[in-house]
Simulated scan of single mutants.
Amino acid sequence: MLTGVAITVVPYSPEWPKLFAGVADDLTRALRGVPVVAVEHVGSTSVPGLAAKPVIDIDVIVEREDVRAAIAALVRAGYTHRGDLGVTDRESMAEPDTPRRNVYVCVAGTLHVRNHLAVRDILRRRPDLRDRYAAVKTALAQDPELDIDAYLAGKSPVLQDVLAESDLTEDEKDAIFRLNTGA
């Protein structure tokens, strides 16, 4: 848990897709020779019009047997492997430079990947949910004492409404809620 670290949420920036494209190009070059299913821009910065923490979230999606090769390639490119940080089938990679980003090597087809893609796609096509989500995030970020765990938990009710529009099962939505709230 990060305590005492302010959560900053800013209005949407049209620069975010450009920053993602540049990092995605770099990742694709670094991963040359590794079978990659996709490099996806996920998280709030991937949704036009959505307020977000100014950090680009990227899922590098590979088959299970290619996870080690993808991690090794990214380490050679300057990333630091931080482990799964408590999320099975998702390996966190710390960025070597700017822009600020979260890069994850993810196993294709897993709940984590399907969750990220569902939230992104639903918020892109549902401005009402996007705006509600933005209002919740912005309000939460106003509390200077809020830690990242409380921030994630505070966003969970609206995220469950977003996921109600997805094809995830009730058990999968419940698992995501428990992960986000620590319940």
Rank of each mutant, 00 (worst) to 15 (best):
V47C: 01
R64N: 10
P99W: 13
G83A: 09
T45I: 09
L85Q: 14
R100C: 00
H81S: 15
E91P: 02
E63Q: 13
S44K: 06
S44R: 07
P54M: 11
V47S: 00
V34K: 07
Y104I: 08
V55S: 00
M93D: 05
V62T: 02
I71M: 06
R68W: 10
R90H: 14
I56G: 01
D57T: 10
L50I: 07
V37W: 05
A38F: 02
V113D: 03
V113I: 13
T45K: 08
N102M: 11
A52V: 08
V39D: 06
L85R: 15
E40R: 11
V55E: 12
V113T: 08
V36A: 05
E91S: 09
H112Y: 15
G86V: 06
L85G: 02
I56S: 00
D66R: 11
V67P: 05
D84V: 10
V107Y: 13
H81P: 09
L31N: 02
N102S: 14
G33F: 00
T98Y: 11
A108N: 14
G43Y: 08
T88L: 13
D59R: 09
V39S: 01
R101L: 10
M93L: 15
E65R: 15
K53M: 08
G33L: 02
D57I: 12
K53E: 15
H112S: 07
T88W: 14
D66Y: 14
A72H: 10
C106E: 12
G43Q: 05
A70D: 04
G33S: 06
G33K: 01
V75E: 15
D57M: 06
R32N: 07
D57V: 09
V87L: 02
M93E: 02
